[in-house]
Simulated scan of single mutants.
Amino acid sequence: MFEGDTIETLAKYSKFFALNIFGNSERNKLLIESGNHPDLYYLRTQENTIKKDEIGQLVHRMNQKPIESEYKVYIIEQFEKLTPQAENSILKFLEEPPEKTIAILLTINKSDILPTIHSRSQHILIQGEDQDRLNALESLSDSEKNIVNVLSLNVQHINEMADRFSLLTKEVVNFANRWIHNHPLVLIDMKRMLDLCDDRRDQELVLELLSGYIRQVLHTTIGLNDFKPFDGPMPEGNDIHPSKLSRMLEEVQNANKYLSFNVNPMLVFEGMVIGAKG
């Protein structure tokens, strides 16, 4: 299972992986690039789901003997799109594949995949390449693209959010500034920020943005200029010091953990704010 934040990069690496399984020859390279390699089955869809029938076609193709190579390879792009029926259909095939058959499952949202699939996979994390990430972004400003790129945010999720990403980013920066300065109205800002979140993915994105912003403030505070996801001046003052910012980052990590345990998001973020006070 190739996990990452940019499907274009995962697709590129999966084809390179397949090429080296078949043999890194010019012929194999041309066949893969043209989508005509007889021993490679690449499943992708523009639909919202991958259905059981499509998995059935894949299984039928993979049960045939290889033609060009010693191995057969199938790649499923955005594996998280499989319906529950499709996942259950492919589970047995993953457990008992035909000889010399290799599956490469690509995902940018592994939390939507059955635990039984995860347990039968070898996981390889592949960070998106900068240009692939930037090319995939649709309507963001240059400053917003920089945030997504530097923090390696999930491009697919950002594109799905559309204008909400800009609104959420502004609220996160506003909240972070008030939190850093211990503003008495910070919990009100927190609620306004969370009201923009539709689901846990959005809440996890808030934590990624928060972590990135506070890290940038920390780098600025100690005189480093090597980490700049956000434009504009960073907060200053006698109440800002590295130990405080480090404690805030620890609380963001804890909040991420509690979210994964399905704790109520409002309680998670309230605990994060209160916990940072020590």
Rank of each mutant, 00 (worst) to 15 (best):
F2A: 13
E3L: 15
G4T: 05
A11C: 14
L19N: 13
N24D: 15
L31Q: 06
L31I: 04
I32Q: 12
N36S: 14
N36F: 03
H37P: 04
D39Y: 02
L43F: 08
R44F: 02
Q46V: 07
E47V: 01
I50G: 04
K51Y: 08
K52P: 02
K52D: 09
E54D: 14
K65E: 04
P66D: 03
Y71H: 14
V73M: 00
I76H: 06
E77A: 10
Q78M: 04
Q78Y: 00
T83H: 10
Q85V: 02
E87P: 03
I90Q: 03
K92R: 13
L94V: 04
I102S: 00
L105W: 06
L105D: 11
L106P: 08
L106Q: 11
N109G: 11
L114Q: 11
P115N: 11
Q122S: 12
H123L: 15
I126S: 07
G128A: 09
D130Y: 05
R133F: 00
N135W: 03
S143E: 14
E144R: 01
E144W: 00
N146G: 05
L151S: 07
L153T: 04
H157F: 11
M161C: 06
M161I: 09
A162E: 15
A162T: 12
N177M: 01
W179F: 15
I180Q: 05
I180W: 08
H183C: 10
L187E: 05
L187V: 08
K191I: 14
R192Q: 10
L194Y: 04
D195I: 01
D195E: 14
C197A: 15
C197M: 07
Q203C: 09
E208I: 02
L209K: 06
L209R: 02
S211H: 11
S211G: 07
R215Q: 13
R215C: 03
V217K: 04
L218D: 12
T220N: 15
T220R: 12
N225I: 04
F227Y: 15
K228H: 13
P229A: 06
F230E: 02
G232V: 07
E236L: 11
I240G: 10
K244M: 09
K244E: 09
S246K: 11
V252L: 13
N256V: 02
P265I: 12
M266D: 15
G271Q: 05
M272T: 04
I274K: 08
G275C: 07
G275P: 11
K277Y: 14
K277W: 10
